[in-house]
Write a protein that binds this DNA or RNA. Structure first.
Lengths: 343, 343
DNA sequence: TTGAAAGCGCTAACAT
DNA sequence: ATGTTAGCGCTTTCAA
């Protein structure tokens, strides 16, 4: 076990004080008017012997860990995985580490994770909040921590936030289906009061109302496992044979729905049933027919989130006024939403 | 900003010394024969005021962070995402935090991540190593850190390791295709010398040799993006029209391959071409025909990995003899590998 | 049974 | 321009 070097070892070898080394290492050489020569020698030795400051000591002393906590709903969902990857990349470039985890949209779990992050002394929090964590987030903000919410808002919490125009996205998707001749369009979503879900429902409803069509909504409990979800969707569709199109509120519900749909009647069901899903997904490119999706601008979301966070982190007091950034979605038209009669 | 409580605040309020509180908090009350009454009072106050010890200070003092570093190839690949989730769950129960990240099989990136983990003072390392990190891992072990390798071995490194029987898995998959009447079976893999890939190739080759069939291998550069990969697979298949089955060495190559195959001739190509992929994937259930896969026992892998790690962590000296655990795979037979003539 | 005090390795105010 | 030194908040030895 190679003994860990300390700053005192460096200082001793060069016959200078610890302070001097510390200043140089922290880029304060100029400011403290330390000779260029000495600065160079210190840096050279540090490099040679591979000295690395003890981060724990640094953090204990400065109160900063250079770490950002990132909590997404589910890191194995490509939508969140992508955003996480992009955020991490930027953060690293700026000298921040990211520690991330999945909330699984579980209130208790999320509270624990927030508490864990506090214990770890992360410098900032990026969160896709489930329901029921309003108070915890308010507390975070009240305690002066930089907080950026992503993907969804939290009512009554004045936090920086990056979301997409969910209402418009769902509205456009629905309108698209109507334009292609579909008339009995169902909306299959989960039983969540999260802002993004509520807004999608509103967009769907609005489009139908404008066209004097009737809304048919199935809310599947979020906690249902794959099998239960499929079952639920099955009986819903069974009982409403006249439905001619489905808009799924989110990709994982759509994936379950597709499993179901491809089983009912592998050959012709997809042909008869119009399909659109919120959130794109790899599977959609493989399904027959390929599935139309409301794609979210993951890159833009990630960029705005990390920019906001870095700004807050740069601030002395995180007193910037809370800013909500709303990004547009785009409709990726594939084969599952062609004109009804054309199929 | 609520002021953070310290251990001294607790001590003061109860008129006892810091030491006493510390002992009690660390479960040494009995050992130090502190009165049950006092113990109870301290615990009660701690609970009431919500005191939480400063982990940074604790770690600095004890040299332990109760954190395990987990580096997988790609956290957004369901295979790794699953393993990571299971490991994290167990680790939490044992009081450990997991900080994870993706190596993307990039040597330099991995070295940096190892170095980052060292800086963070993680207590143990779980790694799916890319090529070229032998020395870094040896160093970790030499320096006395608990290290567990997963999914692949590293030649010349005597580390604890959990893998599957890749040779047998590929052998069985190939034999399965042969039994169903396929004769010109290609193996599409990536140009990696990682143990698991080499072993899969060996299994494929062995099965062919035993049946006097000829091996036809395409090695796609790992660095290729989706488009390049597809292109590479396209020309390979174009030039070898007589191929009647393909064994993909890993799921993401298979996904690219399927994109290609479904495009060449959406209708009949899949029917004529036998398909099996190493690693299961959601997409395989949706493809027409559904794709046969060599499934890895993710749960067992995760369990063995975390058990090994916890054992090492419990040890005073990590001098346990390095142990390699080899788990069996299973063949999930779907429609893409039915008997050739039956299709 | 409990307490005083010495660090863990670093930063930065203060002194020179 | 560089050095001395007091902590950051905790654990643990040694003493009482």
């Amino acid at each position: 076990m190679k003994k860990k070097l300390q700053i005192s070892d460096i200082a001793k070898q060069l016959n200078v004080s610890i302070t001097t080394v510390s200043f140089i290492l922290n880029g304060k050489a100029k400011e403290k008017r330390i000779s260029d020569d000495l600065t160079a020698r210190v840096l050279k030795l540090v490099e040679e012997v591979g000295y690395r400051p003890n981060q724990l000591a640094q953090s204990l002393r400065t109160g900063k860990t250079k770490t950002i906590g990132l909590m997404v709903e589910d890191i194995s969902n490509p939508f969140f995985a992508n955003i996480a990857r992009l955020i991490e990349e930027r953060a690293h470039k700026e000298g921040y580490k990211i520690v991330y985890c999945s909330t699984e949209d579980d209130t208790e779990r999320t509270k624990e994770l927030i508490s864990m992050f506090r214990d770890m002394h992360v410098d900032g929090y990026i969160i896709t909040p489930p329901e029921g964590v309003e108070e915890d987030i308010k507390k975070l903000i009240a305690d002066g921590f930089p907080v950026v919410l992503a993907d969804r808002q939290v009512a009554g919490v004045d936090a920086h936030c990056v979301i997409v125009d969910n209402l418009l996205g769902a509205y456009n998707a629905t309108t698209h289906l109507i334009e292609r001749g579909y008339q009995r369009i169902a909306f299959i979503t989960i039983d969540s009061k999260q802002s993004q879900m509520v807004q999608r429902l509103e967009g769907y409803t609005k489009a139908l109302e404008e066209n004097d069509l009737e809304a048919v909504v199935l809310e599947v409990p979020y906690r249902y496992d794959a099998k239960q979800m499929i079952q639920s969707i099955t009986s819903f569709l069974e009982e409403r044979k006249n439905i001619d199109a489905v808009l799924f509120a989110t990709n994982y519900v759509a994936v379950r729905g597709l499993e179901e749909i491809s089983q009912i009647s592998p050959a012709d069901a997809p042909a008869k049933l119009g399909l659109v899903s919120y959130d794109d997904h790899d599977v959609f490119k493989f399904f027959k027919p390929t599935v139309t999706a409301v794609a979210q601008p993951t890159e833009a979301i990630a960029n705005h989130v990390i920019n906001l966070m870095l700004n807050l982190l740069g601030q002395k007091n995180s007193t910037l006024k809370a800013e909500t950034i709303i990004l547009p979605t785009s409709l990726v038209v594939r084969n599952s939403s062609l004109h009804k009669t054309k199929v």
